[in-house]
Amino acid sequence: MSAYRVIGLSPSTCTQRTLFTAYERQATVDLVPLNIMAGDQKKPEHLAKQPFGKIPVLEMQDFVLYESRAIARFINDTCSSGSTLIPSDPKQRAIFEQWASLEAGTYNPHIEGLVAQRVFVPMRGGQTDENKVKEHYNALKEPLDILNNNLANKEYIAGPFTLVDIFFTPYINMLLQLPEKDLIESRPNIAAWWKRVSSRPAFKKLYKQVEEDRAAMMSGQK
């Protein structure tokens, strides 16, 4: 298959899910940057591909797909290189789907919400709502305890390394840079899991690219 054309930005958490998947599968990606600071994501030509005005978007000839988890699944299902990131055994796949559902519905809303208050709200000129930070922080305690217990005898969340580990990665990476990083660091099995994830070559490739692209954007080169 030819290169996957992805409209997005590597510093974008959702784009990171897409790129991490592609790099794990040793796929070629043509990353097409979008100037979101100039509002290009709200222009008609982008809205025709992504009606919610967000990134990333995948284009393959006449096929267009949005939503990072859907794109990650598509790349995994269509890439011929690397190893699959979705188990084929029915029981293992069911466990994978269980945790993929939990990531999207239980964990991500609060991790993303906390990160948004600490990072994105101030970035847009707003003020962090400490009450909301506290709400998200407290809401994460029990689910993270459950995840910590799940990882007691597993290297990765669903057993082998899968897309669900990738789905969790971008926002946990950001959370670990915030004062609330104890949510991860105080839970030894999650901390050990993170060490394994962040040691993977695809992770290192991705976040090297993120730092380079972020620096270029800050200097006005992109």
Rank of each mutant, 00 (worst) to 15 (best):
K204H: 06
V164P: 03
D129A: 12
G82P: 09
D165T: 10
F168Q: 12
F168I: 03
Y171E: 00
N153F: 00
G126P: 03
P44F: 12
M123H: 03
D62F: 12
R187I: 14
E59L: 11
R5T: 15
F63P: 09
Y207C: 10
S101D: 01
R17P: 08
I111R: 08
N35W: 03
A104C: 09
G220K: 10
L147V: 15
S2L: 13
L144A: 11
L31T: 01
N138C: 09
K222D: 02
L85K: 07
R214M: 13
V29M: 10
C14L: 09
K42G: 07
I190K: 09
R93N: 13
D30S: 14
Y107P: 01
H136P: 04
R25A: 06
N35K: 12
N138Q: 12
A100H: 03
H46P: 04
Q127P: 00
S219T: 15
N76V: 04
F168D: 00
I75M: 04
T15L: 06
E185N: 14
K154I: 00
D182F: 04
V133M: 04
L47T: 06
K49C: 02
S83K: 14
M174S: 11
V119A: 08
V29P: 03
I55Y: 02
K222P: 00
N153P: 00
P109Y: 04
R214N: 08
I111G: 09
E142K: 11
M60Y: 11
M60N: 14
P188G: 08
S101R: 02
N76W: 03
E212G: 02
W193Y: 07
A38T: 05
W193P: 05
S80Q: 15
E45H: 15
R187K: 15
T84R: 14
A104I: 02
T78K: 12
M1T: 13
V119N: 03
P90M: 10
E130D: 12
A48H: 09
Q16K: 10
A70W: 08
A116Q: 12
V64M: 13
R93L: 03
M217R: 12
Q61E: 15
P201F: 00
D89G: 02
Y66I: 00
K195N: 11
P170V: 06
G125T: 07
K141G: 01
V197Y: 03
V57G: 03
N173H: 14
N150A: 14
S198R: 09
F52V: 13
T84C: 12
Y23C: 06
I71K: 05
